[in-house]
Nucleic acid binder design. Structure first.
Length: 470
RNA sequence: GGAGGCGUAGCUCAGUCGGCAGAGCAGCUGACUCUUAAUCAGUAGGUCGUGGGUUCGAGUCCCUCCGCCUCUACCA
């Protein structure tokens, strides 16, 4: 093509507007300049129809031999599906009523060297869709809509939090101690300092140090990394929104998350009922159900669950085909029952409150029962979406609880964090929202890979590429 | 990490009992100046994921490895 004197990759092309703008501002006979990827061509001898596609939509163009001239019309025959072109022409309506551009001039903006996926079935192969997401986005419009929803959600959350007086901050991703959660970190090495480093598993400890430093209302929206298995609800890197507010507690966080998520659904879809047609819808209209961990056990397992002896609850759990080793404690069996039997039944948004303290080392104990902590776990569609706490600000209790969690190994404690608490952290409420899972709920997707543009894939030995034919 | 399923043309998929490797779309050639999954005629396209085995003969049966999906474990 280059040899024939053509330029396969063009420069900037001034457009009247996006294809959607042109459709919205349609006027018979108006001159417009438009550009996009050619996704359909229908040749009819001395005239051709084609559809252009850009980030906003599709628009039909019409080319006639006697309007373009022999040379330009003949050159269009070399345009393949997938090429980008720019056109100039007049808007008109076809006999079948479709708004179109009658092209007077066109130019090639970028040549595509590979064929597009099939027009009718699109790209179905899941592996190809994730590995070559660009093709997935071109061929499957509903995929693009999921990521538009994700982008609008992030934008809404930032706007809303800013409007409510929360301050966005960024804290280290590279940490010398990965704290703030119980999870296996990714490890790396920093040459200049000669020390090993971790990718963060949560920003929590840094955000609390900011509370000590006087930030009353902060949030961070960013990636966390966990060196664990991957399945349809886990990706090694994922996005979390953490929010902290001084002088508040877990109840303030419950109100805030209800308003943020139901507000997002209304903003994005105009309704609080979300999900796909083939699923039971999730109704995000507040107020959401609030139920204590203990009441759930009494409701689903046994009214006297917490009074029953260890043998009785063990037999009950084994009767439900749970794998219960002999050395499991009452509390561990209880959590196994919650995890395996109860949580997955909570389809509509539910705050599970007053959890056992050993499950949540960074939360404050309940005033009326120090065995429990003043927290919620928001469960939607049978899966945990967001935890929220009344934050622990007692440095002595915090040190004791972290020590207990680390199995008594004082070397694993984050002394800088503990020291900052000793300077006094105001009482506070805090929470973390799993953004990927929130997008799954809002879009009805069942796999986290469907809401991440580039999910983690195992490396594949690349086949030797043939040089593209010219 | 463990168990199961899947892998055939660029894409979407057939392929029966082990007996010549198939279709539609995309591609290429030709016809057609309002089509829209355009239509019509013709044509080309394959390391059947990889490596081995059984067999006169393997896309098909057996084993190995690779990748993806689902469940499970760890976890949010």
């Amino acid at each position: 093509m280059k040899a024939a004197g053509h330029r396969p990759y063009g420069r900037a092309f001034e457009r009247t507007g996006s294809l959607e703008t042109i459709r919205a501002e349609f006027a018979e006979g108006r001159s417009v300049r438009a550009a996009g990827r050619v996704v359909q061509i229908r040749e009819m001898g001395k005239s051709s129809f084609a559809h252009l596609q850009d980030g906003t939509g599709k628009f039909q163009i019409y080319l006639q031999k006697n309007a373009l001239g022999d040379e330009s019309f003949a050159a269009f025959k070399a345009v393949d599906l997938g090429d980008f072109i720019g056109v100039e022409g007049e808007l008109f309506t076809t006999r079948t009523g479709e708004p179109s551009i009658k092209v007077q001039r066109w130019e090639l903006l970028a040549k595509s060297l590979h064929p597009l996926p099939e027009k009718w079935h699109g790209l179905q192969d899941t592996e190809l869709r994730y590995r070559q997401r660009c093709l997935d986005l071109i061929a499957n419009p509903h995929v693009r809509r999921v990521f538009d929803t994700r982008s609008r959600l992030l934008s809404y959350l930032r706007r809303e939090l800013e409007a409510r007086g929360y301050f966005e901050v960024e804290t280290p991703v590279l940490q010398s101690l990965a704290g703030g959660a119980i999870a296996e970190p990714f490890q790396t090495y920093y040459n200049a300092l000669g020390q090993s480093m971790f990718l963060r598993i949560a920003p929590e400890l840094y955000l609390k140090r900011l509370m000590v430093g006087g930030y009353d209302k902060v949030f961070e929206l960013g990636k966390n990394f966990r060196n664990e298995g991957l399945d349809r609800s886990h990706n090694p890197e994922f996005t979390a929104l953490e929010i902290y507010e001084a002088y508040a507690d877990v109840r303030g966080m419950m109100k805030l998350i209800e308003e943020l998520i139901s507000g997002a659904a209304l903003e994005l879809f105009g309704t609080c009922r979300v999900g796909r047609e083939d699923q039971e819808p999730v109704d995000l209209t507040p107020p959401w159900r609030v139920v204590t961990y203990h009441d759930l056990l009494r409701e689903h397992a046994d009214r006297d669950w917490f009074e029953r002896p260890l043998e009785a609850v063990r037999d009950w759990a084994r009767g439900k085909e749970l794998d219960i080793p002999d050395d499991m404690t009452h509390a561990q069996i209880t959590h196994e029952v919650y995890d395996k039997l109860i949580e997955r039944t909570l389809w509509q948004p539910t705050f599970v409150t007053r959890l056992p303290a050993e499950l949540v080392p960074l939360a404050k104990r309940c005033e009326d029962d120090p065995v429990l902590v003043d927290v919620f776990e928001l469960v939607v569609r049978g899966r945990e979406l967001a935890p929220g706490y009344t934050e622990l600000n007692d440095p002595l209790d915090q040190r004791a609880r972290l020590l207990e969690q680390s199995g008594g190994d004082a070397g694993k404690l984050d002394e800088e964090f503990l020291r900052s608490l000793e300077h006094g952290m105001p009482p506070a409420g805090g929470m973390g929202i799993g953004i990927d899972r929130l997008v799954m709920i809002l879009t009805g997707e069942e796999s986290v890979r469907e809401v991440m543009l580039f999910p983690q894939m195992k490396i594949r030995q690349p086949r030797p590429e043939e040089p593209p034919a010219e």
